[in-house]
Design a protein around this nucleic acid. Structure first.
Lengths: 192, 192
DNA sequence: TACAAAAGTGCAATCACTACACTTTTGAAG
DNA sequence: CTTCAAAAGTGTAGTGATTGCACTTTTGTA
């Protein structure tokens, strides 16, 4: 059904060449030490073309994120009966982290992003871009108005949790503690 | 005791001229429509000098943030007996918001930042820069290890709450709900 | 008074990104 | 199969922030 014409195929291929070239070069020599010119050269396209496919240098590394948003919303909507929203989100993030563990490149990639401020920032904005969608899904689920503050807050906190979790050595435990905090609150085991 | 020599005074004065020129121009015509050159000209310094005083164009608008960090840490450390940490932070942020209401310029300034993505992002990183300090203060207060995940999470969430709150019409209520969520958890009034 | 550090300057360069005018490719209609 | 407009790609020249460099001026201090 999704028969792509030759034109579309070539376009995607060009895009892929660029993304591949970027990934290789950045992994090998670091984000800041490789210019866009060099990426374009290696992909055998002009700089102008490169920027027709990607809106910025950072974007070269973060392809395809519309799937992420739907997966995020689905994690809330289609969670098993009786499971709370925070727990569903925790499971979603931990599952994603496990999936990444398969890909050997992913560790190196994560380290690159971690160590480059510009990339960290960009990745964050990519994620928070989904904040509104997530907030709306949560609000709908609990029957609150679409701009409810607590739903917006939970959405924001959950996405931030992801960021915090990925910076920790023991992600599973970190996820448990953070989402536990969101679910039961600071007061729950802090009677001091 | 803090006798500043003429040299230091002149340096501060130059810095202030630059910051003033930047604020005026940016408020009048928008951040993106004023070049660094123009700011430097107005402050009667060279562009080189401007960048010796400020690390970036965005930084021209966000001076003095070391006080903010100590105020933040103090809000936790010196909170009244019996007050929870989330409540102390809520009060700190709401109080700051009220204080700002006095300054007539502040509204315009806030609107400028709000409407300029680059400034929003920069302001966020300025705040999250204090995340570690806040996390450490919290951990120390409750007797947890300095890198405890829950303390780090609470610090992050609190700072994010500030950002969410400032985007809402009714800040007081938003603050109550968000910090209530942090204190008592999502489960507390969400038994559905 | 003399000297070294600090503050300031102007110039040229880098780098991401854009506007423009242009050529080539290609899907589809006739 | 031809034709033609849209889409994809190119090269050039520019903008605007930021940096490095070599230089002059100021100023605290010995």
């Amino acid at each position: 059904m999704t028969e792509l014409g030759r034109r579309e195929r070539k376009k995607l291929q060009t895009r892929q060449s660029i993304a591949d070239a970027a990934l290789e070069l950045f992994l090998a020599r670091g984000f800041d030490d490789v210019g866009v010119k060099e990426v374009a050269d290696r992909a055998d396209v002009s700089v102008t073309t490169l920027f027709k496919h990607f809106p910025s240098k950072e974007a070269l590394l973060f392809d395809e994120d519309s799937e992420m948003e739907s997966a995020l919303v689905a994690a809330v909507r289609e969670r098993p009966a009786g499971q709370s929203i925070p727990q569903a989100l925790r499971q979603h993030f931990v599952g994603a982290a496990r999936g990444h563990a398969d890909h050997p490149l992913f560790g190196t990639f994560a380290r690159l992003v971690e160590s480059t401020p510009a990339l960290r920032a960009y990745q964050r904005t990519m994620w928070t871009r989904h904040e509104k969608a997530l907030a709306r899904a949560i609000a709908e689920d609990v029957g609150a108005p679409p701009d409810d503050v607590r739903c917006a807050g939970l959405a924001r906190f959950a996405l931030e949790s992801r960021d915090v979790i990925f910076g920790r050595p023991d992600r599973e435990r970190a996820a448990e503690e953070l989402f536990g905090l969101l679910e039961h609150g600071w007061a729950a085991d802090q009677q001091a």
